[in-house]
Design a protein around this nucleic acid. Structure first.
Ligand SMILES: O=c1ccn([C@H]2C[C@H](O)[C@@H](COP(=O)(O)OP(=O)(O)OP(=O)(O)O)O2)c(=O)[nH]1
Ligand SMILES: [Mg+2]
Length: 481
DNA sequence: ACGCAGGACAG
DNA sequence: CTGTCC
DNA sequence: GCGT
């Protein structure tokens, strides 16, 4: 983070998506530059060309590209057109170097041949590796309407089970939220990383009309409404919901009479309303006090903390995610403790039902606070609390860091981290970060780190992200190739 | 045309 | 194996 | 739906 390029506006060529270009753009921004999406003689201060992408044969393609982006006359422009090496050198020397040695002469039409060997070398860099930082988004974005509407589109796709469309929308929204100027046209929109033709079109429509017809159609459709209703049942996903709709089911009453429900689905139906409600943060805290109190009877050394959205600072939580551990404990030791806890909270009435009991390390439940504790929630203390979804993750002491990362999330943050691990030839899961070692035909996973949350991130070249910074839309993990 | 995280349980 | 969930 |  420096002010090296403060006040400068760079136009990148190619000025979109691609991995390396994207990372250089981030580098520029980190040192104070702004990125232009189109050429402006008075606004753009430098054109930065990725020479190994663009100048493979000749400069003509580059000139065409620049014209398309708004450059009127190559001969007359005062804006320097330089290779991106200039940027890299400036940063590494921490000073603004003269552009002269890096300029690309567009006035001369004949091709400047690059050496193949240097091309290769540049291209075969092992890992495109920038250090990530917690991102900042522009609050009060000038594109808030588009962001909101696109979010609703993503929700429609989620309901209809199009996971990768959801992902694509999230990525596009993430970019759009950081843009500080209004994006009003297809051509502006499609410049943004993560925005392709389909979403660009939508952004233009939203910006013109403050509306998206496709969204209204989707929201209004009977199919989507029923999908939403049925998917609200715990244990019912896209496929089952579709199936039921095809079979003519139209209400939860229709479902109640079915004989093919799993145990979990029947519970999901029974607690339909309660489990679709979000839990106020203050109530989660009471659950933590209660569970800690109960665990204290089992073994005072056991620790229980809430992860998930609670740890990320959410004001309301979809469920309560407990991480349960004990200094130096192995999984076996914890399982014994957990069995005791289950007995204890079952006796006390807190544990209402079990959805899944992963013999391994997880317990997914429905739980209600007893009246005396619920007093702290409703101020009355006469009734049992609402049934809440409560998950317990048992964690051997040595794996605490990896487990904390996993169970703190959010899910998108985990995915980006794990994807990054892949790029480093490693695997990240809830038990640790492992190096993939292949001997012969078999491949082994060799533990690199599992105890220290901070070390795991740092090994992946990810700066420390406080839990609050792991929320989608807040963190900014650069695209990977 | 392909990948988009990784792992666990129910049925 | 498929579907669902964390 | 997007990037490669
Ligand atoms: O597909 C998933 C879902 C969840 N998780 C991790 C991250 C998440 O934070 C944690 C707990 O899951 P949960 O579904 O409770 O999500 P949350 O982040 O706590 O949000 P919510 O407020 O909806 O509970 O498990 C994943 O890694 N992948
Ligand atoms: Mg949660």
């Amino acid at each position: 983070m420096t002010s090296l390029f403060l006040g400068l506006k760079f136009l990148f060529i190619p000025n979109s998506k691609a991995g390396v270009s994207k990372i250089r753009q981030k580098l520029a921004v980190d040192h104070g530059a702004q990125i232009c999406s189109a050429f402006g003689e008075t606004s753009t201060t430098h054109v930065l060309v990725d020479t190994k992408v663009v100048l493979t044969a000749n400069t003509e393609a580059l000139i065409r590209t620049l014209k398309k982006l708004g450059l009127r006359d190559i001969a007359k422009t005062n804006v320097p057109v330089v290779g991106q090496e200039w940027l890299v050198q400036c940063v590494s020397k921490s000073e603004l170097l003269p552009t002269a040695n890096y300029t690309i002469d567009l006035a001369r039409p004949s091709a400047k041949k690059r050496k193949v060997s240097s091309l290769r070398k540049a291209e075969s860099r092992p890992i495109v590796d920038t250090t990530l930082e917690p991102g900042e988004k522009v609050l009060d974005s000038p594109n808030q309407t588009s962001v909101d509407v696109l979010n609703e589109m993503a929700e429609q796709h989620r309901i209809n089970g199009e996971a990768y469309k959801v992902k694509a929308y999230r990525n596009a929204i993430d970019t759009l939220q950081r843009v500080s100027t209004p994006v009003t046209s297809y051509s502006q929109a499609i410049q943004l990383e993560g925005v392709g033709p389909a979403i660009a079109k939508k952004i233009e429509e939203i910006s013109r009309t403050h509306h998206l017809r496709q969204l209204d159609v989707s929201k209004g459709s009977r199919h989507t409404q029923l999908m939403k209703l049925f998917k609200g049942i715990y244990g019912v996903g896209t496929v089952i919901a579709k199936k039921w709709i095809d079979e003519g089911m139209t209400s939860l009453d229709d479902i109640k009479n079915r004989t093919d429900l799993t145990d979990a689905q029947r519970l999901g139906l029974q607690y339909y309303d309660e489990w679709n409600e979000r839990i106020p943060r203050s109530e989660c805290t009471i659950h933590a006090e209660y569970v800690q109190y109960m665990l204290n009877r089992v073994d005072p050394l056991i620790e229980a903390t809430i992860g998930g959205s609670y740890r990320r600072g959410a004001k309301t939580c979809g469920d309560i995610d407990f991480i349960v551990t004990k200094p130096d404990a192995t999984m076996e030791a914890l399982q014994a403790d957990m069995d005791n806890l289950i007995d204890t909270i079952k006796q006390a009435g807190y544990l209402q039902c079990i959805l899944h009991h992963h013999v391994k390390n997880k317990l997914l439940t429905g739980c209600s606070l007893p009246p005396l504790w619920n007093k702290k929630v409703d101020g009355q203390g006469e009734e049992w609390g609402k049934c809440r979804r409560v998950d317990f993750l048992l964690v051997p002491w040595k794996e605490l860091g990896a487990a904390m990362i996993y169970f703190t999330g959010d899910d998108e943050f985990n995915k980006k981290l794990r994807y990054r691990a892949q790029k480093h030839g490693m695997v990240l899961n809830g038990t640790g970060l492992y190096k993939i070692v292949r001997d012969g035909s078999k491949e082994r996973h060799e533990l690199v780190e599992s105890f220290d949350e901070k070390k795991i991130m740092s090994l992946l070249n990810v700066k420390w992200h406080e839990p609050e910074q792991r929320n989608t839309g807040v963190f900014d993990i650069a695209w990977n190739g």
